[in-house]
Design a protein around this nucleic acid. Structure first.
Lengths: 248, 248
DNA sequence: ACCTGAACACCGTTCAAGT
DNA sequence: ACCTGAACACCGTTCAAGT
């Protein structure tokens, strides 16, 4: 068990004065440890050895706090490599964003809860757009390409479901697992086929599941290759509401 | 202002007995109207003209309630068209899922908060997998294709940011808008270029923004075309952890 | 300028009790 | 079998007050 900031400071007898920056970093640390739902104004205040209301001197409200936390995470994304072609520059940048997001699992939900971008986020988008424009993409194609990338721009893994609650005693009962697979085989044969393929690919059935990094790059590369093809073909959207647009 | 269920029933003197189904449908209606955050055990109880604790006879807890609500929405997705080729079957099904999701804006967050699939969700996935397998896709390719589609399987629009709060007086001050665009032009020239292209495409700068349906189909078709290409090439993942996989 | 303390209007959920 | 009432342990945030 890690010694909390407040306990440590009480023990050492001093207590650093709260600043916005200190509050934001403590909030990031708290969310890293216990998830976004464990971060409350009250828990953050306790971590800083201060009464909840003291935070409102440094942060307008909880939304403002989360804005600041998001800016810290966006700041961890590597700048684009200079001199590379657009495709590898975009690819590397997005993989860097993914790395940043992966080390802060709460950040996806935090970003998705924002109703508008901070200046830090606007700058990041701006440089991402610049990679395509400098690579010769039209404004039109760049616009749609940004939509197609969507969450990937922010490094979001596209997994849909929430992590199962991290209970300490999460050992899988082998008997129950076998029974579940048996039931799956009869009720959901197609799904079972895939589950078995994944299991076969692993050292054990119990083991981790899918290779998220591979899946992320798989989809990213299909998209990037698609963009490249459309760009080479001189694709334009030529007005809106045309339905299907895929290359013939 | 709409007359609430409870008021209506109090006025008519009768009050239907609560059932699980009635509770779920009332919850869906409540979320449709006021968003997921307006749905509380207390507000739902009031809607049903009952005390909060009465709900726990029909629903294990709030998570169980949301599970039931999600099942209702998944049930609104059209079954796959029989006899179609895999590509248009998948395409139509996903567009149907999107339609279902669009009429219940809270459903995306509800689905994303689930830690495991309900039987209804498993059946939906099973039939989606079947479309690819019956179309001749290998288990291997089907598996990765499912990951690449990710949220699109559930009809998720990939938009990242939360809707701005729906305030009643949300009229845009034209002067403020002009100033914002001016600032954007100097600080974020690439972004400005795109903003102008979007504005030009609209009847007015104030108007709605992007054509979400177009953007959804744009990305979907790039992915489907990519899948088709990989399938034709007999693509296999040939072991894991190989990095890049895009077609050469 | 910064921090405190009490309070308000909420949550989901418990427990024991009513009919 | 179904519903009630009071209570618990939480939230974010207000207001007025202290130093």
């Amino acid at each position: 068990m890690r010694m909390s900031q407040s306990v440590r400071e009480a023990a050492s007898g001093r207590r650093a004065r709260v600043t916005r920056d200190r509050a934001l970093r403590a909030a990031v640390a708290l969310a890293d440890e216990g998830g976004l739902e464990s971060l409350t104004m009250r828990s953050l205040a306790q971590e800083l050895g201060v009464v909840p209301m003291a935070l409102y001197k440094h942060v307008a409200n909880k939304d403002d706090l989360i804005d600041g936390m998001v800016d810290i995470i966006i700041g961890e994304i590597d700048p684009a490599i200079a001199g590379a072609d657009w495709k590898s520059a975009v690819r590397e940048r997005i993989l860097s964003a993914r790395r940043a997001l992966l080390s802060h699992p709460w950040a996806r939900a935090a970003i998705e809860s924002r109703t508008r971008m901070t200046p830090v986020m606007l700058s990041y988008m701006e440089s991402m757009i610049g990679l395509f424009r400098d690579g010769g993409f039209s404004v039109d194609l760049t616009h749609h390409v940004l939509h197609a990338l969507a969450g990937r721009i922010w490094g979001f893994t596209q997994e849909v479901f929430a992590d199962p609650p991290t209970s300490e005693a999460t050992e899988v009962d082998p008997e129950a697992l076998a029974a579940a697979l048996q039931e799956m085989a009869s009720k959901y044969p197609y799904s079972h086929e895939i589950a078995m393929a994944i299991a076969h690919d692993q050292t054990s059935v119990v083991g981790g599941g899918c290779d998220d990094q591979f899946e992320f790059e798989f989809a990213l590369d299909i998209l990037l290759d698609g963009f490249e093809r459309l760009h080479r073909q001189g694709w334009t959207s030529t007005g809106r509401h045309r339905g299907v647009v895929g290359p013939a």
